[in-house]
Design a protein around this nucleic acid. Structure first.
Lengths: 200, 200, 200, 200
DNA sequence: AATGAATGAGAATTCATTCAT
DNA sequence: CATGAATGAATTCTCATTCAT
């Protein structure tokens, strides 16, 4: 029961933090959504800030695990990078909260990130770094700072996922810039451009 | 004098909204930073929400104007795209607030965006769209949805600029993923990968 | 109006802090008693703690001023000491809050005392110290540490004033220990014992 | 084992009630200090209020017993009064909590005192009363209300013991009012002044 | 145009207490 | 006996906003 309670809180918190940001949502609301008493949240997590940190760390860790698993199913740097992007996409398709959560954190320059959570973030970037290094070593890829392709992927996928409603508002226009694309189409095209761009 | 006051408020607001987000900063704090009385803010802008909208619209409009001017100094799609990216970079180099401001807005799915401001945003994307269309028309570029290169640029440049402090925290590690790069270097490498990636 | 408001708050606070102690009374209650909105208290005093400190300092300062004035109307150490005690008494007769306020502060070892307020306290003791020094110098008084007569006066007068209701509960007994005495009678007898006790 | 737990709770409670007062300390904190679960406190004592009353009654009773024993070792009123004061002092020297505990109770006009506990208090005063009565009967002491010497002793000894830290803060001054005295010196001087003052 | 004062509605956090185990 | 979990009711403090001047 205790674990159920904790999970309910963590899920409710994740949704609201994603939707409204840390400052934009309140503990009452989280308690309502989790169907627990507000004080119960403070019993399990000591403060709103610690709850937020827990949500972030837990989800990033889970995300890293899934990315790794999928990436390591492949051998060539190209397939690995594709796997990274497509897993990124499929994860975001299932879990709509991750994208705004990460984006807000980046926008606030990691203010709420603990050392442990930053370490997880680092391991995610490292996945891309290793792939690029392999690509460079085998003469496939040009020499480029790892963070640039990483930011390209993270930036575009997170923005795409976060702006579901916003993108719809452009679809009345004569030009919707392709905004109606699915996340998988987007991931594929993104992969294609990046891989092509990195190729020697 | 009246305009001085208004500008002071707009500047203070921009800095604080950028740093802490709409919900994360309060009118008292803006008043303090602008060195005006809190009621003065309500005299010039009707509410916190309207102040925020004004900040956003004003700055996006200014940003669009600068991008346009620089892009239109060039002729070929390639040079134009490069100009778009490098102007993006130089603007962010001068104005550290724009990046987190935009990023937060995207993370919150444009909740605070007025129709007018969304229109400005649309015109910025349209700049890229036109360039890509030209490129496609002249057989230089592959056929790709415009928003993808756009999100790649916006995502990576905004994340890079927003995470100055965060990136520094990675620089003790043996691998800093190239995070120490300047914004201009970053823009150049980004241009190179995207142009290469779009090329037929 | 602003000063009226502040005074209302200070008075209400004084009464409640005296009656229930710092932790025993709440800001809502003070606001009710002062007939102001709770937020108004926070506007004028930044926190409950600062309100408390202000109450303490203001009242101790006023108390010191009155003691000094009366003491300095006399010449001999004996008359001065009597004046000190009787003024102490007459002040406490008018202002029932001062005694429990001071007593609680002493009980909590001056935890809430600011440097400035401690200085006022010091000046009150100094009044007694000077009197005793004069008495010793003119060969009237025995050599005794100043704080002891001071604590005797402060202790007995403050306890007497603070325990109005408690003392009444003893008055059904066959022996009420003299608890029914007035504050002036008490002060006189106290003076007599101390003066007699200090005499060479 | 059961008694161990109860004693741990009573000791922890005594220390915290003394340091912070009834309202200033919370059951969680007592539980932490006693190294028991919070619910255990409610198992042994029914409420915070009852725990407090138990602490008070137990300790006052113990205090009374010790005072009585020492006082009754002497015969003359003078020696008995001296014994009362010196036992007061030696008890407070061993048990730093008693003084603030009593002082707070007096400051709050006995609000938390049960009838039983008030009866114990009464018996303590009665000890002094009997001594003074004897002194008056044998023509040694002047006629004075018993509570006044009692309040002088209680007031000064309790204030002295409660203000260990506060007194230290005065010791940088050029005049420390004798605050550096030990409790035994203080008790001796107090005895001397009171006895001298009561003498016919 | 600008400001000090005031406030209603909320927000985070605490706390004494209960209860199932 | 003892405890982890849970909670209703406070409690301190904040905040966007208004208003008289």
């Amino acid at each position: 029961m205790a674990n159920d309670t904790k999970d309910n809180i963590l899920n409710a918190a994740k949704q609201l933090f994603a939707k409204r940001g840390y400052d934009g949502c309140n503990v009452d609301h989280i308690a309502d959504k989790a169907k627990v008493n507000k004080a119960t949240i403070y019993y399990h997590f000591k403060s709103k800030a610690l709850l937020y940190e827990t949500v972030l760390e837990l989800n990033l860790r889970r995300f890293l695990k899934r990315l790794r698993k999928k990436v390591h199913e492949h051998d060539s740097p190209e397939r690995k990078l594709e796997a990274f992007v497509s897993t990124y996409a499929s994860n975001f398709a299932d879990d709509q909260q991750m994208a705004p959560l990460m984006l807000r954190e980046l926008a606030s320059d990691g203010t709420h990130l603990t050392d442990k959570t930053r370490a997880v973030l680092s391991e995610i970037i490292a996945e891309v770094d290793v792939i690029l290094e392999e690509g460079r070593a085998s003469g496939l890829f040009i020499d480029a700072k790892s963070f640039i392709p990483y930011f390209m992927i993270v930036g575009s996928m997170n923005i795409f996922t976060s702006t579901k409603k916003l993108r719809k508002k452009f679809q009345n226009n004569d030009n919707d810039f392709g905004f109606a694309a699915t996340i998988d189409e987007t991931a594929q095209e993104l992969s294609r451009i990046i891989l092509n761009g990195l190729k020697k």
